[in-house]
Amino acid sequence: MKAALFDYERPDGLDGALALLSRDDLSVRPVAGSQSLGPMLNLRLVQPDLLVDVSRLPELTGIRRDGDHLVIGASVTHARLEDGDYPDVTGGALARVAAGIAYRPVRNRGTIGGSLAHADPAADWVSALTAMGASVVLAGPAGRRTVPMDGFILGVFETALQPGEVIAEVRVPAFSPAARWGYYKVCRKTGEFSHATGAVLLDPPRGVARAVIGAVSGPPLVIDDPAVFTDPARRDAVAADRLATSSIAGDPAAIRTHMVALARAIAQVNP
């Protein structure tokens, strides 16, 4: 189980990386920790000509506070987010989500940007950052643009990234002190990819009452409706309604599991 031949470059700066990524004579992919891409390479499910290593780009490896946002470089590892050596704005929610991703040796290498670019619907950051109202900053040949998470993930392994673009940063809005975060994923084993995810943020001072159903073989389902937090019947009705038009519509057991995941995430914010 060995990867097909590929070439590898590790430019010093983001501009150099973007120049390589915009080559159209080769199939080029950015790589950071290679924790999602590595298995696909070894299984020969992807066979790029060139990997551009962005894991050490100084522009992508920092975490900083920018006004009412935490700005996380795309090449920041899950382990760093788990360990919390940054000015957190989420009351520990980022660390909690990070600690549940795969296993520590994977978290030591895997990055937040890599996970989002990979866009597995079952991935933690896909659902969690959508519920947090985060956005991603994409850098490309035409400059930078910011895309909200709700709109970045377009499908299974499908994102708003255009050819030549790379995720530069993730911007997470600061929770208010009153915010409550709920996160529940259904896994048969520790560290396994989620079968159903509920991610919810209830932050009344900011007017946020967002529920997300994730791991649905497509973009996460976003429900911005405060009533689902207080009214179980409405919660189930809205969730069932959204799931009925989702990619798992034909699978009643999966629909039920996703509704349970959502209910349990909401239960965490409703003591």
Partner: peptide, 8 residues
């Protein structure tokens, strides 16, 4: 730091 050497 512990890491997977098969996918690194």
């Amino acid at each position: 730091q512990p890491a997977r050497s098969c996918i690194t």
